[in-house]
Design a protein around this nucleic acid. Structure first.
Length: 877
RNA sequence: GGGCUCGUAGCUCAGUUGGCUAGAGCGUUACGUUGACAUCGUAAAGGUCACCCGUUCGAGUCGGGUCGGGCCCACCA
């Protein structure tokens, strides 16, 4: 039974009910879809949002794009799985909760203790997670909630522990030292992106270690020079060639040092003296040089930012105090050559603003260069590079291939341990110098658990397979269950800013665990900026709450506004006007449907959808051709990830072709019911992945089935007929141009309502129109001759008629001007033709270009030649 | 410093491997409608496609350079 549609579409009245209807149907879960056994899978894992805060518009855009892909494939008989989840975001979450507790109670995490603090974090996580899941549902996202995951829930914890053990046993995970960013005040390490650089003025001191040392060095931190073991120069620097490889015993401010002169390309020749004192223990770059050259590493500074024991008068001093003392000593000895004030970047803690101290520290690492038997001798890095280079994994836009490969090729071992409390624990135990790795502590006494946790990207790197039942679904190298059916996934859709942080890690982790890629295609979306092109952020207060705009305009309008005008990898701007215009469109679609449904009865509505109705007039022919070519464009643009273009094509068809023209003709011409119902059903099916709510709401008013699982009708063979039908374009322009002609002709008199003319002029009722418009005799003859033609009308013929009509009606066209225009056009065509001929005679082009391009060029040439003939004829040549 | 990217109408952006008179939405103006449509329709105005040079029969599109935004990475010891 058909239900009456209201005059205005009010999203709030429908959305929640429809979401419930979808969810209750069970079809979000691909296991419940009625599909043949061999149906291909289509899997997307949702990039798990951080549970630090509620979602913003960027997330909404992500959801809109992914839901579009999933719904489209679900309709088209794929085993479509979209897997939801959230990320524990270790550091970010811990900071958030620490701040919250501190502002509420004035207590730090140390005051609470590890256990109580983690309970607080869990409370926070539960709250935000509920908010986030609610927001996701409001967007209409068709996620399979039965598979909901969290990077720190129990199945994921088991997976992470197992991964750590496997990697450790394979020698991929090892414990080693490296320079970390240490905040002496917070007593914790900082990730590279938590370090903030601040410009400050500092003194650059140039001096010699002692009078017998041949080279002067420059530094802003003389106190660290107590730990120097080398001086590095650029290998191309002629000044120092003779010293390279030599070793010197020096006494620097009372400390005996052994300094080797080494060559390294990282040294800039024109900075300072072009010679760099290498302090392996207190500079990341120097550490690398020391590793490369096997230099000893002397620790000078301790975890409190004080000079360590064993440095005589300097021991126990702060770095600043030690610096003053060293400088004074150098001045006294006459070793100081130059002191100049410069501006440099100071590394600071993002939390407390204090300068950070690079310190060596024992950490857990993943060896990215270790050859692995399970990867046929390739290292993780090599496997991850090969997958992209050989095209197994593709990026969109393609330019991110380069960024990925550049980053991968320069990748060093990945430090995975973090000195924070919230996160996956490290399954390692220590007793003195002994290390044991395993989930349970060894039976013997005295073993102490590793206190650190894992980098959050360790667990999110496993996201594509930890969510599909790994490791239980992976026995003896063979995938079972969900892993067989859904891995590798088809598409990873995410923001380009986490390409290196996340995407690259997923590739390595998947190759290690399963020996296969995690996904085939990576679609990278841009960032949603505010109206002025600025990033949205809490501190600026320019963020937009998706729930608010959904409440105001409906989820469909928000989705469509985020999909249209957004291209992969490019940022797009948010504006409320844009949402408003999409809201208006959705209402238009509602009213188109309402208009059609009001003119139909129940029987016709049950017409099978895969029966192409018969076209009885030019306008029928035209609109069906447009519908089917729109559908074709839509399918190709969707498979090319050209979402914006897909939506625009459909939008243009719906509004400019269907509503503005065809529906108007049906107000005059009756008997279009079967065509209208065919168009309406197809229209709703095609729009559904973009704007699921309104389309489902309309569909439900006259169907018992769910639009969500309504397949696109099979019309392939018919499609070609309509697309190749040359009448389809002509009819439209013919009508339009006729209207213009009529209006121009009658500008002095009263004008017939344009839309009536539009309708009348196309069909059998044109007689009526013509009798009312005696002025347009030329048009009449034209129409009559066209109507008399059998078969599809010739577009060119229509154009010729129209030109005649134009000239006749206006009487104002200067024949000379027209001739001049034609001459110019002729000139143009001649140029085109000779160019195309030359092109086609070029053997290189014929050999190298794909066949369809060559054919297209040939077709073009043929068209131009025909056109040229016509112009020649009208010029009387 | 290295790399990437963008510059098209007042604003936000399309422009599908170079092709006929460069498009859309919003905004502006005029006229017409208000029995599918918080309207809607028809039209108008508005662009040296940042600039220069080159390749080509032909450049918004390809190459080189200049200017101006944005992003990423590295980082001055």
């Amino acid at each position: 039974m058909k239900k009456e549609l209201a005059k205005i579409y009010e999203p709030a009245l429908f959305e929640d009910n429809i979401y419930r209807l979808w969810e209750d149907s069970g079809f979000f879960n691909p296991d419940n879809l009625d599909l043949p056994a061999g149906a291909p899978s289509y899997t997307i894992v949702l990039p798990p949002p951080n549970i630090t805060a509620k979602l913003h518009l960027g997330h909404s855009a992500m959801l809109a794009i992914e839901d579009l892909m999933i719904r489209y494939h679900r309709q088209n008989s794929y085993r479509a799985l979209w897997l939801p989840g959230t990320d524990h975001a270790a550091i970010a979450t811990q900071n958030m909760v620490e701040k919250k507790i501190f502002s509420e109670t004035g207590k730090t995490r140390h005051d609470l203790g590890r256990k109580v603090f983690l309970e607080e974090v869990d409370k926070f996580v539960a709250e935000t997670q509920a908010t986030i899941l609610h927001q996701i549902r409001k967007m209409g996202a068709s996620l399979d909630w039965s598979r909901l995951a969290f990077t720190l829930d129990s199945p994921r914890q088991q997976a992470v522990q197992r991964m750590f053990l496997d990697m450790y046993n394979e020698g991929v995970i090892y414990r080693g030292e490296r320079i970390v960013n240490w905040c002496p005040r917070c007593h914790s390490t900082l990730a590279d992106d938590e370090v903030e650089y601040k410009e400050q003025s500092a003194f650059l001191y140039t001096f010699k270690y002692d009078p017998n040392f041949p080279i002067a060095i420059s530094t802003t931190r003389p106190e660290t020079k107590l730990g120097d073991t080398a001086v590095a120069v650029n290998p191309k620097d002629e000044r120092y060639q003779q010293y390279i490889g030599q070793e010197y015993e020096v006494n620097f401010c009372g400390q005996d040092l052994r300094i080797k002169i080494i060559a390294d390309y990282n040294v800039e020749m024109d900075f300072g003296t072009g010679a760099l004192g290498v302090t392996p223990a207190h500079s990341a770059v120097d550490w690398q040089m020391a590793e490369a050259q096997s230099l000893p590493k002397i620790k000078v500074i301790n975890e409190d930012g004080l000079i360590r024991e064993g440095f005589g008068e300097f021991s126990g001093l702060s770095v600043i105090a030690a610096r003053e003392k060293v400088v004074a000593s150098l001045r006294n000895q006459g070793l100081m050559i130059k002191e100049e004030e410069i501006v440099n970047n100071l590394s600071c803690c993002y939390r407390c603003d204090n300068p950070i101290e690079p310190l060596p520290s024992r950490q857990w690492f993943i060896a990215v260069d270790k050859p692995l038997a399970r990867l046929q001798g390739k290292s993780l890095k090599e496997a991850a590079i090969a997958a992209v280079r050989e095209g197994e994994i593709k990026f969109l836009p393609e330019r991110f291939n380069k960024r990925y490969l550049d980053w991968m090729e320069n990748l060093h071992d990945w430090c995975i341990s973090r000195q924070i409390w919230f996160g996956h624990s490290i399954p390692a135990w220590y007793r003195g110098e002994e290390i044991y790795v395993g989930e349970e502590a060894p039976a013997a006494e005295g073993w102490i658990k590793d206190n650190d946790t894992l980098d959050t990207w360790f667990s999110s790197g496993m996201w594509t397979f930890s969510t599909l039942g790994w490791p239980d679904n992976f026995k003896d190298g063979i995938k079972t269950g969900d892993l067989t059916r859904f891995h590798p996934t088809q598409v990873l859709e995410t923001g380009y800013e986490i390409l290196t942080l996340w995407v690259s890690r997923m590739v390595m982790m998947s190759f290690f665990a399963l020996g296969e890629k995690p996904f085939s295609q990576v679609y990278l979306h841009g960032t949603i900026l505010d109206k002025n092109g600025k990033k949205m952020s809490k501190s600026k207060g320019n963020g937009v709450d998706p729930l608010e705009v959904i409440a105001k305009y409906g989820a469909d309008a928000v989705r469509l506004s985020l999909l249209m005008g957004a291209t992969p990898g490019n940022d797009s701007r948010y504006s409320e006007e844009k949402i408003e215009s999409k809201r208006n469109f959705i209402n238009k679609l509602w009213n188109i449907s309402r208009f059609i449904l009001n003119n139909l009865d129940d029987e016709i509505l049950s017409t099978p959808i895969d029966v192409l109705p018969e076209a009885k007039s030019l306008s029928d022919n035209w609109i069906l051709g447009e519908l089917l070519s729109t559908r074709k464009t839509l399918a190709t643009s969707l498979s090319d990830f050209n979402f914006s273009f897909a939506a625009e094509t459909l939008y243009d068809f719906t509004w400019n072709k269907l509503a503005d023209w065809y529906l108007e003709t049906t107000k005059i011409e009756k008997g279009k019911e079967t065509i209208l119902v065919f168009i309406l059903k197809n229209l709703l099916i095609m729009w559904h992945p973009f704007i699921p709510y309104v389309t489902e709401a309309i569909w439900q008013s006259f169907n018992n089935t769910l639009l969500m699982v309504e397949p696109w009708p099979k019309l392939a063979n018919k499609l070609d007929y309509w697309i190749n039908n040359p009448g389809k374009e002509a009819d439209f322009s013919f009508v339009q141009e006729a209207i213009i002609a009529i209006r121009n002709a009658r500008s002095e008199n009263k004008v017939e309502p344009a839309r009536k003319l539009q309708a009348l002029v196309t069909g059998p009722k044109s007689e009526l129109l013509l009798s009312q418009a005696p002025l347009i005799k030329g048009l009449r003859t034209g129409i009559e001759s066209l109507l008399a033609t059998d078969g599809p009308p010739d577009g060119q013929a229509i154009k010729v008629v129209l030109r005649d009509v134009d000239i006749y009606l206006l009487g104002a066209v200067d024949p000379e001007k027209e001739k001049a225009r034609l001459r110019k056009e002729k000139e143009n065509l001649l140029n085109l033709i000779s160019g195309l001929r030359a092109h086609l005679e070029n053997q290189e082009f014929i050999d190298r270009a794909p066949a369809h391009i060559v054919q297209a060029e040939k077709d073009k040439l043929a068209r131009y030649e025909i056109e040229l003939e016509k112009i020649r004829a009208s010029l009387g040549v």
